[in-house]
Design a protein around this nucleic acid. Structure first.
Lengths: 320, 320
DNA sequence: ACCCTGGCAGAAATCGATTTCACTCGTCAA
DNA sequence: TTGACGAGTGAAATCGATTTCTGCCAGGGT
């Protein structure tokens, strides 16, 4: 692995000069040529590690997501990646697995690997960003925004989405509409349920027994749906607050022969690999990729020194 | 951000001593105590960057996969992650997007970030591992093994799987069985097609027009299936060589009203979020997570100095 | 003739941890 | 009593790039 010193001695100049050539500073044409030749001959690549140690920053951004197996987040990751790569940044993907401890670990790593910034889809509302903020590392929240920190965020309008989905079921003639949402400590989950409540209230009192908190995963949706069906007076429709739980719920309904339109189903977020039969399911599409793109652009702005007050960007659910 | 020097001066010792305390070398009990107290008081974390520069290695392994949106690879990633984390390594996930140039870039990054090793699901057979090998960084191939490099690999028996899948269709009474496989330059794609050919040959000459090379993605499967249906004498069944193309093919069949069992379908790899109706689809399950676990263990062995000749581990398709 | 400015380039400091080297003390065996 | 040995410690070198600090030299203004 060639170092800058070897290049320097081969080109007959000092390491400083090599560095200057590489970073496009004033160097005489002749020496610049010699340096470039030497660098090519030795197939020299500057050590990022040394560079990072000196500069105290690196061209890497961390993307921390709670579930790498959820296509929503991977689509978002693609968006982030595309923007970041185009700007010359690498993205490292960190899967917090909805686990606060793992998440905290990754945030620590981001700090101390001197990463340029972090895009965070938090595992819960309470996560400690103080380390990053103290060290002045930009953070952009995406999809979920942690409490108590005034940072940039890119969100969708969860409450409106929940309302729309529930209203769609109502207009299909369903009246006992249940809701399966995510964990209580995840803002998006609560807001989507609020939207459900908003819509439900328009036709009468809200029966809170029809609200199930689950875990945003297939199994959680599966279990919650089974519980709902086992109620003395089961719902005649269900609003499921994310894609994976939607899959879980549909599994149960398929088993029990109550697929839509027998039992109404509305899902927040695109069903992954939406297969087969275009069924009578209401889907509130989510601009996953666009969330990632927007967050990445926001972060890059911050990295480049933009210091206006934090913004929260709310994307429309429908690509207009 | 506290440094080792600040800790040293607070504890009234030299930086060397601090380092020794942290790395568990011989230090008198009294000084060790003072160092630990100072470290805690300053909430000191050693800089990985500086450490990596000095040691020329870091506790990070790279996992390079060709498609982050394919649940097969994300499941694999989970396996890798779990093993690596347990051993104290961080995993950075790199999405090569089936693009050889991106893949090469990530391999470069792995080299020069001094990562401890690489687990690679290659974008194609021809990929250049010489950089890693020259620098003695362990590499484990998973799912696909690059040509021309004698390295550890964890594979499934693709040919046998293709054979089994096709035979299953035959035994269901189908006779004109097509095959949709992946890119020509991806070993797994070719082997799965070979398996199809093996089985097809048992009942007569193989019609190569029934073999479509696609791209291992939903759209590719979609397009290939449409082409097959448009043939003068369309097949009466199809073996699809990966999960995403399976989804694509099924989309087409659903549209044209030829879902199984009207037209036989066998898929290599679990259908993602296998939804709804347990249809008459033959699925060859793939131990995705186990591939990751096995690869990670292999890699950790190498990192820890194991230098027996490279091994190739072939996992059974069925969890026995 | 003299000073100032600005471009160019090398020496050396810097980033923060690890490790070698060298030195001091004790302890123990000869 | 002396030499050997080992544990404990600090000073300094090291990893590789960037950057400040200096100094040199040429060109232009007075």
């Amino acid at each position: 692995m060639a170092t800058i010193y070897e290049v320097a001695s081969m080109a007959g100049v000092s390491p400083s000069t090599v560095s200057r050539v590489l970073n496009g500073q004033n160097v005489s044409a002749e020496k610049a040529r010699r340096v470039r030749e030497a660098a090519k001959a030795l197939s020299f690549t500057p050590s990022r590690i040394a560079r990072t140690l000196r500069l105290q920053t690196s061209e890497v951004i961390a993307l921390v997501i709670p579930d790498i197996e959820n296509p929503f987040f991977t689509a978002m990751a693609r968006g982030v990646e595309d923007v970041a790569q185009a700007a010359g940044y690498s993205v490292v993907l960190c899967n917090s697995d909805e686990d606060h401890a793992k998440e905290a670990r990754y945030l620590d790593i981001a700090i101390e690997a001197k990463m340029a910034g972090v895009i965070l889809a938090a595992a819960g509302d309470n996560c400690d960003l103080s380390g990053l903020i103290e060290r002045n590392r930009p953070v952009v929240a995406v999809d979920r925004s942690p409490h108590g920190f005034d940072i940039d965020a890119v969100m969708v309008d969860n409450r409106a989405g929940g309302r729309t989905a529930t209203a769609a079921l109502q207009s299909q003639g369903f009246s006992r509409i249940a809701c399966i949402t995510g964990p209580r400590d995840v803002e998006t989950a609560v807001h989507r349920a609020d939207g459900w409540r908003d819509a439900a209230r328009t036709t009468g009192p809200v029966d809170e027994r029809y609200l199930k908190y689950a875990d945003f995963r297939v199994d959680g949706g599966n279990k919650a749906m089974r519980e709902l069906l086992a109620m003395p007076e089961p719902p005649d429709a269900v609003f499921v607050a994310n894609n994976l739980m939607g899959v879980g719920a549909l599994q149960v309904l398929a088993q029990s022969g109550q697929l839509p339109p027998a039992l109404g189903v509305a899902v927040f977020g695109d069903l992954p690999f939406a297969p087969i039969a275009p069924m009578a399911i209401t889907v509130i599409p989510l601009p996953a990729r666009r969330l990632g793109v927007t967050a990445a652009n926001l972060l890059l702005d911050r990295i480049n020194g933009d210091d206006q007050p934090p913004r929260t960007i709310v994307l429309r659910n429908q690509a207009a």
